[in-house]
């Protein structure tokens, strides 16, 4: 090894050590754990136990179903919304742009517990502002936390509120990388503003939007905070239990680490498959 390389690895060593201990090792170890019976002492190798249980566990299918529903509804809604926000933020007509950018980005930096508490208050059955507003326009109060479909809707609204601005900022950077003169050329080509958006902006944003979609898919697959804090640990009655929450209950409430590891690997596998599928569907047309 050349001296300069040795020095470089020397400087990298502390990081690599930490990375190996706290990243690589748990990943390998949990893979191993998923094949162990962790309900006995000492643990015993029993590959069929966790994986066999997973594929027949109605609680797993419930969590998978909930996660998929959230993913399929929330990701497209949020990305569409984020694109619209990005276009508005990019408008030359907008005054005080910096303030708006910060405002849309702010939810990401708000503490999770604080944001969850505010959502619980806002959607409270008796004195939440949302129900009051609904009453004003003649809609009876909705018990957001007691009925599963409404609780799901609440989760989707909360997650969208939290992450739409973040994605909008990423899409905005994509928008700003499109040169202005391309639009001027299109204007002189007599192409309307709307068609410019459809035929120029969207195709040129494709890679950025795809990136946001993949990020959001991964985020939704791991969804935990909101069902834990807002809908009260996946309530009502498991109606909003997600894979992330299911994993938590198995691993840290029941201390069944083998089963939790199998769930974790399933989540990661699904996230990879769905993301790859998206990248493939959204690939550049040849």
């Amino acid at each position: 090894m050349q001296l300069r390389n040795r020095a470089a690895y020397g400087f990298l060593a502390p990081y690599l050590l930490i990375f190996a201990i706290f990243w690589i090792w748990p990943i390998i170890s949990s893979f191993w754990m998923s094949f162990q019976n962790t309900r006995v002492n000492p643990w015993a190798f029993n590959p069929g136990m966790n994986w066999g249980r997973l594929f027949s566990d109605p609680a797993f299918y419930n969590a998978l179903k909930n996660t998929m529903i959230i993913l399929v509804i929330q990701v497209p809604v949020m990305i569409t919304l984020a694109t619209v926000i990005a276009v508005l933020l990019n408008s030359p007509l907008l005054k005080a742009r910096g303030i708006f950018r910060f405002a849309f980005f702010a939810p990401v930096v708000v503490g999770e517990v604080a944001y969850a508490a505010v959502f619980r208050l806002m959607f409270n059955l008796d004195f939440g502002i949302i129900n009051k507003l609904l009453n004003k326009i003649g809609i009876p109060s909705i018990s957001w936390f007691a009925e599963a479909p409404f609780a799901m809707a609440l989760l989707i609204i909360a997650v969208t509120w939290r992450w739409a601005g973040y994605n909008a900022i990423i899409i905005l950077s994509g928008l700003q990388s499109i040169p202005e003169d391309v639009y001027e050329a299109a204007t002189l080509d007599r192409v309307s503003k709307f068609k410019q958006f459809i035929y120029i902006t969207l195709p040129l944003l494709r890679p950025v939007i795809l990136f946001c979609v993949v990020l959001s898919i991964i985020g939704s697959m791991q969804l935990f905070t909101e069902p834990f804090l807002i809908t009260n640990r996946g309530g009502p009655g498991g109606g909003t239990e997600t894979l992330g929450l299911f994993l938590y209950r198995q691993g840290f409430a029941s201390l069944n680490f083998g089963y939790a590891s199998a769930i974790a690997y399933t989540m990661a596998g699904l996230a990879i498959v769905i993301s790859l599928l998206n990248l493939w569907l959204g690939r550049e047309p040849k």
Binding site: D181, V182, E184, A185
Partner: peptide
Amino acid sequence: ADRGIAMVFQSYALYPH
């Protein structure tokens, strides 16, 4: 669009996609 003119830009401004 209605002035009956066409313009060639210094940067070409071709539609990249």
